[in-house]
């Protein structure tokens, strides 16, 4: 059973002469429980794919079947119970005027969860924050803590698929490690399927089993992580990417 099955996806912005194609003819499948990575430079369309799946970009064509649901322009509420997203910038993804408690309880309320009080406590434990953080406002949290709250929000309704849009690129390396470990643990615990976008091959290689390399809105190739580790890329573009990130890391 595939968690995500996408074929011939095109996504564009604007219309007529202003039309800019962000994603062109992309097809891929993600199995249940798999972790799939999307890498590429900025502007390669990797984030756009996630946003199209989540329903944040209405202008797309092709077929998308996600969590057993064939997607149209609108998404049902049931869809959002199964698919959630974590954004890149934890400083922009939390409402500046809402406490952690408010964010989580509203999310659960929307999904008709009843024992909200108990669940919030457990959720905060799950993401390693503890009850002391429950009534804090975003400006009282560090970047890593904010991202944990954002992850807790994503998990609040117990989805099966988590879309991760560069979840660590705005964080310090030391905090990045903590968040990546957290994502690894949560995936095991909750049997989650991940689709993760990143420009950092090290991060993607750490968390994902298969990696789609994107350039100018198209897939250049899809590699298994072992192939990537052995630097066995077929396409020159992928090889170039690999080389530059290997160099920058070691």
């Amino acid at each position: 059973m595939n968690a995500i099955d996408i074929s011939n996806l095109d996504v564009w912005f604007g219309s007529g002469a202003d039309r800019a194609d962000a994603v062109r003819d992309v097809s891929f499948k993600v199995a249940d429980g798999e972790s799939f990575g999307l890498v590429g430079e900025s502007g390669s369309g990797k984030s756009t794919i996630l946003r199209a799946i989540a329903g944040l970009v209405p202008t797309w064509s092709g077929e998308m079947t996600v969590a057993g649901e064939t997607l149209g322009v609108r998404r049902s509420k049931a869809f959002y119970r199964k698919v959630q997203m974590v954004f890149q910038d934890p400083y922009a993804s939390l409402h500046p005027r809402q406490s952690v408690d408010r964010v989580l309880s509203e999310t659960m309320g929307l999904h008709g969860v009843t024992d909200i009080d108990k669940r919030i406590g457990r959720l905060l434990d799950d993401v390693g924050l503890g009850p002391g953080f429950r009534f804090r406002y975003p400006h009282q949290l560090s970047g890593g803590q904010r991202q944990r709250v954002a992850i807790a929000r994503g998990l609040a309704c117990e989805p099966s698929i988590l879309l991760l849009d560069e979840p660590t690129s705005a964080l310090d390396v030391s905090v990045q490690g903590e968040i990546l470990n957290l994502l690894t643990d949560l995936r095991q615990e909750h049997k989650l399927t991940y689709v993760m976008v990143s420009h950092d091959l090290g991060v993607v290689g750490h968390l994902c089993e298969r990696i789609g390399v994107m350039k100018e809105g198209r897939f250049v190739e899809v590699l298994a992580v072992d192939e990537m580790r052995r630097l066995e890329a077929r396409e020159p573009y992928t090889r170039h990417l690999l080389e530059s990130s290997i160099n920058s890391i070691r």
């Binding site: 390396v173 490690g177 903590e178 991060v203 750490h206 690999l242 290997i246």
Partner: peptide
């Protein structure tokens, strides 16, 4: 704490 592509942990 940096994930390393060639030396996975």
């Amino acid at each position: 704490s940096v994930p390393d592509l060639e030396h996975p942990r």
